[in-house]
């Protein structure tokens, strides 16, 4: 079992990581060009008005004072109010609206990647140097090489424009009005008992999930293949076969668990890429998740939203990696020693 000390150490590291990320984001925002006061007041506003806005936002204080205030507020999970995106609204509320959208997309993309990547990798390793292996490797290489901003529009062109079987963009058809209870569109439509809306939401998710899933699948299948190839050469695998165990049982019972350990790392790293990739995917498919929020906030010099969004990304990435570490220890208790 995973020791409490191990988990406590990882949780304690969360503090320095978030402090570091908050500090770097704060520094970069203040070193980069762009004045939020001008962005709010407008290019044609008088100097007095711009100064008034700057004073209202607390930007006239020395930077170290702003930094101390920012750290203090962040420690109490008070991210302040949005300058531009939804002027005056609490950043926490904006994030709460947008975050489930990105999580839903990333989780479904990861599930799709695992569902196809794992069997493909195992099959490729078991049938090494056959036609199946070659096809699988070419497929994986293609998946890794194709960028999201190219595959996304290509899928839209094929499935929405040419074949007309999938919607182009958005999260749900414009004729459906669903109360957002959880923020996850699939769950909300089911809770509303509206199956037609559920179907519409599911169809809207197909292309973004494919785009994210293919990338993940490609990495997972390649890692699974190489890991499995190494495991099948081990003595304990030969011993299991020599004792009369079938090839399939040996692979599934002894091989899979050991081959899965390096793949877990890739899954953790991939989830981080999914969050990063969501910026592009959401932009291409016009989904209002946290990725598009970040782009919009950077363009509008909305400091509180940028800072909070990056912190949320860092928090999620760290938590996912904590789970990865815990899974490691469960699969291979020696790691915990």
């Amino acid at each position: 079992m995973v020791s409490k000390r191990f988990i406590a150490k990882r949780l304690l590291l969360l503090g320095p990581v978030l402090f570091g990320v908050a500090t770097v984001v704060f520094a970069i925002l203040h070193l980069s060009p762009g004045d939020p006061a001008i962005a709010i007041a407008g290019e044609r506003a008088s100097q007095e008005f711009v100064e008034q806005v700057r004073s209202d936002l607390g930007l006239t204080d020395p930077l170290w004072e702003q930094y101390v205030r920012f750290l203090g507020n962040t420690a109490t999970l008070d991210f302040g109010e949005s300058y531009q995106i939804r002027r005056g609204a609490a950043v926490g509320d904006i994030l709460a609206d947008r975050l489930p959208i990105t999580i839903e997309l990333a989780v479904l993309g990861q599930i799709a990647g695992l569902l196809f990547g794992l069997p493909l990798g195992i099959l490729s390793a078991v049938k090494k140097d056959t036609l199946t292996d070659h096809f699988s490797r070419v497929g994986a290489l293609t998946g890794i090489s194709v960028p999201i901003y190219w595959s996304g529009p290509l899928l839209i062109l094929l499935f929405a424009q040419v074949l007309g079987i999938l919607p182009t963009s958005g999260r749900i058809g414009s004729t459906y009005f669903i109360d957002s209870k959880t923020g996850f569109i699939l769950i909300d439509t089911l809770l509303a008992g509206n199956l037609a809306a559920f179907q519409s939401a599911a169809l809207h998710l197909v292309m973004p999930v494919i785009v994210l899933g293919v990338y993940s699948m490609a990495f997972i299948s390649r890692m699974m293949r190489s890991s499995m190839l190494e495991v099948v050469r081990q003595d304990y695998m030969r011993t299991a076969r020599a004792k009369g165990q079938g090839a399939k049982t040996t692979v599934m019972k002894h091989g899979l668990r050991n081959a899965f350990i390096p793949v877990i790392t890739i899954i953790g790293i991939q989830f981080g890429s999914m969050l990063g990739g969501s910026v592009l995917t959401e932009t291409v498919f016009e989904i209002n998740g946290i990725g598009t929020l970040l782009v919009e906030a950077i363009n509008k010099s909305d400091y509180p939203v940028v800072q909070a969004t990056v912190l949320v990304f860092a928090f999620m990435y760290t938590i996912v990696n904590l789970f990865v570490d815990i899974t490691y220890s469960v699969l291979d208790p020696r790691i915990d020693q």
Partner: peptide, 10 residues
């Protein structure tokens, strides 16, 4: 702050 943040993360 950039140096401090980078150092702490790393």
């Amino acid at each position: 702050a950039l140096v401090l943040g980078f150092g702490v993360i790393a």
